[in-house]
Design a protein around this nucleic acid. Sequence first.
DNA 1: TTAAAAGTCAACCATTTGGTTGAATATATA
DNA 2: TATATATTCAACCAAATGGTTGACTTTTAA
Lengths: 105, 105
Amino acid sequence: MDHIFHALADPTRRQMVRMIASRERTVSELAEPFDMSLAAASKHIKVLERSGLLERTVQGRIHTCRLNGDVMARALEWLRFYERFWTQQFDALERELYKAKKEEH
Amino acid sequence: MDHIFHALADPTRRQMVRMIASRERTVSELAEPFDMSLAAASKHIKVLERSGLLERTVQGRIHTCRLNGDVMARALEWLRFYERFWTQQFDALERELYKAKKEEH
DNA sequence: TTAAAAGTCAACCATTTGGTTGAATATATA
DNA sequence: TATATATTCAACCAAATGGTTGACTTTTAA
């Protein structure tokens, strides 16, 4: 979890996730949009890889990267678990507001 | 987004989120389960506050902390947006497997 | 076989992070 | 009023982060 959320905490890496979400990309393709060295982009890719969000296949000198949906889903589930708490809280607030409104009359 | 995911990338802070998800907590309550100084916990709380996930009300010397569901929901939405991509990919894979199985016969 | 292309690696640097301690602040209580 | 409580602040430290550059490896193409 640490690695997943940490990977997503950087805008460069989130954009990379967006890129591999739509289709597979090579390392150079992933690096291209960014104003940084290939080595720097390569490091970002490795952070994504450590988190499991990104998986890589090497064919010759080409490294092809794709998204691992299961890992993505794990982060989603973590958040989703707490969703009921905050919606509950919201419901409670809503009830309070309703009561307050009723008491106006 | 940077701040939200960064806040969630630390296990101490995720546990603090869990704690305020169920109900409001003071700073000392939030710090209590952890083997670290109050000052260190206070820093974690400030990271959560910067992300917007945690909100604080001060009454006298007591700081009461609660979860901001809207901010939590924003992170959830970011992930949920890409959910369709990976489920699509999964569906495509499933179709491939089905085809492969059919060809076995 | 020579050169270009795709990537990584290692060393370096500034900044941020996550922790510490000791002092400071403000509020409640005896 | 003196003291305990709740919390932050500032200075410090080691480790991690995000970037750089230059050298290196492997594979492809001329």
